Amino acid sequence: MLALGTLLAGTAGVAACRAVPAEDFGRPTVTAPAPAVPRVSIQDGTIPSAAAAEGPTRLTIPALELNATVKAVGVDPDTGDFAVPPSVDQVGWYRFGPGLSATAGSIVVAGHVDSAAEGEGAFFRLGSLEAGDVATLTGPDGRSRTFRVTARERYRKAAIPLQKYFSREGPVRLTLITCGGPFDPRTRHYRDNVVITAEPRT
């Protein structure tokens, strides 16, 4: 999960995972340079305009045989964490950032890698995506937008550059985030975050 305060400070990662030990998940290699992103200012947490914040309802990734429901999520008021949907079969779109109609910024979708109770999550194989693989977001009206993967990166959760990935500025792109790296049986968490960047397909 993601603490809102640490999102802005950039001192913690997104813990979209549950507690199932697994192999070292999500290779740390970068498949292609990520889009250049200018330095961003801290946002005030208000929701963007209705047009920019139109939320997707479905994510499909053919390379993963993934067809997942997307829920609009924000921040858990009790914990301050990114409120990823509890079901591992669903993924969450960060509603405080750009939406399906965005012309700038990072459209963020996060999901669980796995669960002790439910098994593999929607993003279990996210770290296997390669440059050129496609991901499509679809809205409630059936309108869709397709993106092509340009980068696959892995960070320690304390080192992920959250302001880069949650930016409302710069070229529009899709950012997919889950847990990865070694699993710590003591804390029942993965050490890292796996981040996929995808640009609009032209």
Rank of each mutant, 00 (worst) to 15 (best):
G55Q: 11
T136L: 10
E65R: 15
P77I: 02
S128A: 13
D192K: 03
A151H: 09
P38C: 04
K157E: 04
G142Q: 09
R18C: 14
F123D: 02
L137H: 04
V75G: 05
D44K: 07
F96G: 07
I47E: 07
T29S: 10
G97H: 05
R191I: 04
L4T: 11
I160F: 04
A198D: 05
A34R: 12
P62F: 03
D184K: 03
R39Q: 09
G111S: 08
M1I: 12
H189E: 12
G13E: 08
A50E: 13
T150W: 02
G111M: 05
P35K: 04
A34Y: 02
P21Q: 10
T136E: 13
D78C: 02
G45C: 06
R191C: 01
D24A: 09
A198K: 02
I42G: 09
V108F: 01
F183L: 05
T6C: 07
G74M: 10
G142P: 12
P62K: 00
P77L: 05
L64K: 08
L7G: 05
E118K: 10
A36M: 05
D192R: 03
G142D: 10
S49L: 05
T6G: 06
G180M: 11
P38W: 01
G74N: 09
R58Y: 08
A135D: 07
G181Y: 01
E54A: 13
V88L: 05
P56E: 09
L174F: 06
G99V: 01
D133V: 05
I47Y: 08
R201K: 11
P35C: 03
E169W: 00
P182H: 07
D76W: 06
G74E: 07
N67V: 09
R173G: 10
L4R: 14
G97C: 03
V40E: 11
P48Y: 02
R143T: 14
F25D: 08
E23V: 12
P85V: 06
D184P: 05
A116G: 15
I196Q: 03
G119T: 04
S144K: 13
R186C: 06
V108G: 04
A34E: 10
A68E: 05
T31K: 00
D78K: 15
S87R: 15
C179K: 00
S106L: 02
